[in-house]
Write a protein that binds this DNA or RNA. Sequence first.
DNA 1: CATGTGATTTGTGTATACAGAAACCCCAAC
DNA 2: GTTGGGGTTTCTGTATACACAAATCACATG
Lengths: 238, 238
Amino acid sequence: MYTETPTTGTTAPVRASERAYRQLRGEILDGLLAPGTGLLEVEQAARIGVSRTPLRAAIARLIADGLVAGRTGRGFMVTEMSVDRIGELYEVRRALEEHAARIAAERRDPAVFEALRTQFLAAPELLRHGKAGLRRYYELIDEFDLALDVAVANPFLVGALAGVRTHLARIRRLARDNPDRLRSAAAEHLLIVDAVLAGDSSLAAHATHVHLHQSLTSVLATLRGSSAVPADPSPPPR
Amino acid sequence: MYTETPTTGTTAPVRASERAYRQLRGEILDGLLAPGTGLLEVEQAARIGVSRTPLRAAIARLIADGLVAGRTGRGFMVTEMSVDRIGELYEVRRALEEHAARIAAERRDPAVFEALRTQFLAAPELLRHGKAGLRRYYELIDEFDLALDVAVANPFLVGALAGVRTHLARIRRLARDNPDRLRSAAAEHLLIVDAVLAGDSSLAAHATHVHLHQSLTSVLATLRGSSAVPADPSPPPR
DNA sequence: CATGTGATTTGTGTATACAGAAACCCCAAC
DNA sequence: GTTGGGGTTTCTGTATACACAAATCACATG
């Protein structure tokens, strides 16, 4: 089924299953598809504009991601995200990121982390520039994560971290960070970068621990205020 | 309404996709489908006796498991397992299992680990009883893993550990443990159990570190002897 | 003899039709 | 009013047919 007009060459052959996956994943991460939402194959296939076959492939990937759970009887369900679940996620995140920081300190490319250091030094200034500055800040975090991935150079570890970050994106959406917290976070990141740069693996790991502790504390405090997330709603995923 | 079920009860409605998944996964873990083997949908579907649709669902799950890699043009491929890859796997394993041991020491049910302790004490004796004893020993390891999973009570962490253990099963098959190593391993496990039992989370983590170090050393030594695994054959998975 | 180009083959990606099973609903019986 | 049962509906699971893309091979040409 080709609805594409034969324009100038670059007709990227995006598979229907890929489109469905990206759209559903995006909608789940953005909260458009609320946790607990029951979804039906036919209905979603029609909505997205693909047939059931590629849609099922997309669902399979989302289940592997832990974003949706197969429902025993009817359809499938967007997984819930409770306070308990957030705590558990951070537990795994600590294990993986502390280890990653430790390894990165041993294997890092100094030039990359020098560049990051400069940028994190400028971050507080960045946060005074409204929405654009905020977006730039989040890009910086992404660069930091990427630099860590490259430094650890371990596909298994990087893959596990990617899984954690997926769920983290959902949480970040719920707990809109306030500027004060972001300024502190930048300082914490700076310390991690410095430790990695100095090759101090122990400090890198412990600084990561501190950062994640502060992050979790902040998230939980925000959620306690808004109560946008149930305390303990559902059985665990998978 | 009763559809004619002449046999006694257990007519489990096993989905075709589930059968295909289990068979392929089993064959990969057992090494019947060697790493690097190129597989074709039609050919595998015919072999297993299902149509392409459920087979593709099975493949999707195997890709998520990291056991097969997406196609490079034609078909899909059983992922390779090099010495480098084994080292990387153990790196993640250390991160997760050390953390799990630490947590387990804080949340464990003493009765469960008391029972494990008794069994690990008897393990050396077990290993003198040939093949049956060996199987029992591996069952004991499984029980230990399960006890840890229950103790940590964290779906994310347990899920990540399950992923690691999947790949570990492939390695274990390559590096047939020798009795001496197993006896040492039993002693190392005993120390971990003792630490968990005592609620000594630091010792539990460090004893796990020691155990994994010895395990990796032994695996690498075995492989260096047999050279059943390439040194650095392929691009990383995913 | 090497190399480029076109036809053929082969395999995946997608749509759709069909069958079985589970949930829903209505109605009757207690 | 509640509960149990049977019919209906609806959705998933599977098979299959078709379309497009890529790799292979043959053949011609330099």
